[in-house]
Amino acid sequence: MPVREEAGLKVWQRRERGRQLAIWAGWLIGVTIFLYCFQLISDKTIWFFVLDAGTQAGDLGSRMFPPQWSYVDQLWVPLWDTLNIATIGTAIAIVIAVPVAFLAARNTTPSVLFLRPIALFIIVASRSINSLIWALLLVAIVGPGEFAGIIAIGFRSIGFVAKLLYEAIEEIDPAQVEAVTATGAAKPQVLAYGIFPQIAPAFAGISVFRWDINIRESTILGLVGAGGIGIQLNASVMELAWSKVSVILIAILLTVVVSEWVSARIRHAII
C-alpha cells in the first residue's frame, strides 16, 4: 500500500517511492533520447534554410494563388485512374489476403510450425515496404502506367488486410465453432458456417478502410510513374507551375474527403 508513516501520521501517496522514482527516471530517459535525436537532426540541418522558410512559404503561397481553375479539365482522367488504382488494387489485395489471414491465425492455420511463419513473413514484408517503393520496383519490371500502380497498391495492402483480418479471426467466439463442428460438419463447412459469419463485419470494415487509405496512397504513385494524378503533380512541380499544383492539391483534398465519407457511411451501414 502506498501509505507511509510520517511523524505518527499516515500519509497517502499515489505510488510507492520506488515506483515513482522509476517513472521519473523513465521520463528523464525519454526526454534525453528525444533531445539527443533532435540534436542529431539539427546537426544535419542547414538552419539558414529553415529560418528562411517563412519567406519561402510566402513566396510559394503567392505563386499558388489564385489557382489556375481551368486546369481542372485535364484532371478528370487522372482522378478516374487514381480511383481505379485504389479500387482494383484493394480488390486484388483482398483476394490474396483472405487465405493468408487464415494461414496466419493461430486457430485456423493448418500448420503452426511451417505455414504460419510463412504467412506472417508475407504480412510483415508486405507491410514494411511502402507502396511507393513497391511502385518503384514494379515500374522497372512491368513498365510505367496504372498497371504497376495497381499491383503496388495490391502488394502493400495484402499485409494490412491480412494482419487485421487474422487478428479478428483469433478473436472469434470458439463456442459457435464448436457447435458447428458438433453437427458433424466438414472443415470447409465449419469455416463457412462457424467462422465466416463471425468475421464478416470486420472483413468488410477492414476492406473499406484500406480502400480509403489506398485512395490517398495512389495519389502519389505517379511520382515514380505508376499512374494516377501524381503524374500531373510531378510534372507541375517540375515546371514550377504552382498555380496548377494548388488545383491538384484541392482536387486531391476533395477526393480524399469524399472517399472518407463514403467509407465511414459503408462501415456504419455494416455494423
Binding site: 537532426i41 539539427s42 544535419k44 540541418t45 542547414i46 534554410f49 529553415v50 522558410a53 519561402q56 512559404a57 510559394l60 511507393l132 490517398r216 496512397e217 495519389t219 502519389i220 511520382l223 503533380l233 512541380v237 492539391l249 486531391i252 483534398l253 480524399v256 474527403v257 472518407e260
Partner: peptide, 28 residues
C-alpha cells in the same frame, strides 16, 4: 486533421523539402 490526413506523407514531404531544404529536418 482533415488537411493532415488527406495528403500522403510523400506529398507533404515535397513541400517541406521546398521550404526547409533537403535533409532530415524536412522529413521530421
Amino acid at each position: 486533421i482533415a488537411v493532415s490526413r488527406s495528403f500522403q506523407e510523400v506529398l507533404l514531404a515535397i513541400f517541406f523539402v521546398k521550404l526547409f531544404g533537403f535533409g532530415p529536418f524536412a522529413g521530421f
